[in-house]
């Protein structure tokens, strides 16, 4: 394809779906998200089944701290909004502002991840609650850790895109990439909504 095809003088309204490749990426990514939903459902199902099996170790209502979870929730929810802002600027063909808001998203994501690492370290060193303590422990760390792994991957993904395309500016080749990374980031927040509800809040209620 000639350079002009991917860098048109006037950007289309939806640059992420203006090329066939963009359309394919968009569709395939939603197919992937359907699969991710099943993956997390099996982890949630396992957690619910093993939640009461504490093997003499700490139970959910004893260790969870809602203040920390609340701060984490706010960080991730806000980062979802900032990535919406990034996509808003992408659609208006404003590359600088898109990069700026993606940067804010990454910072909020790093904040979330740091709190999660602090939380796990605290459980392991002060509460004697590890992956091997009980079936509840294994299920908890697998579910929440898997989500944390998704956050880590999402952060690396967005940072890579930002650096790789920093000098290219926005075009029809990289717009789908940015759009899909932002969809992934929203999906991470979707999963977190269920984690803070089912694991932490319902765990505290008992």
């Amino acid at each position: 394809m000639s350079d002009h095809t991917l860098n048109p003088e006037k950007m289309p309204h939806n640059p992420e779906k203006a090329t066939l490749e963009g359309k394919n990426k968009f569709l395939a990514f939603w197919f992937f998200l359907g699969g991710e939903t099943v993956l997390f459902a099996s982890l949630f199902g396992t957690y619910l089944a093993l939640k009461g099996s504490t093997n003499g170790g700490p139970a959910a209502e004893e260790i969870f701290e809602l203040e920390l979870v609340f701060v984490m929730t706010m960080l991730l929810l806000t980062s979802s909004l900032t990535s919406v802002y990034a996509m808003y600027h992408m659609k208006n063909n404003n590359f600088g502002k898109m990069q700026l808001w993606l940067g804010v998203t990454v910072l909020l994501g790093i904040g979330f991840l740091s709190f999660e690492i602090y939380e796990f370290t605290n459980y392991i060193t002060n509460e004697d609650f590890t992956f091997r303590t009980s079936a509840f422990g294994s299920a908890f760390y697998t579910l929440v850790g898997f989500h944390g792994g998704h956050v880590t991957f999402g952060l690396l993904w967005i940072i890579t895109l930002m650096i790789r395309n920093a000098k290219r500016g926005l075009n029809l080749y990289n717009a789908p990439k940015f759009y899909i990374a932002s969809l992934y980031w929203h999906f991470i927040d979707v999963v977190w909504v269920f984690i803070f509800t089912v694991v932490y809040l319902m765990g505290k209620v008992g």
Binding site: W30, F31, L33, G34, T37, G45
Partner: peptide, 14 residues
């Protein structure tokens, strides 16, 4: 369609 397909299997799993 893709997402609700996934969600259906997810519901059955849980």
């Amino acid at each position: 369609f893709m997402f609700y397909g996934g969600l259906t299997v997810a519901t059955i799993t849980i």
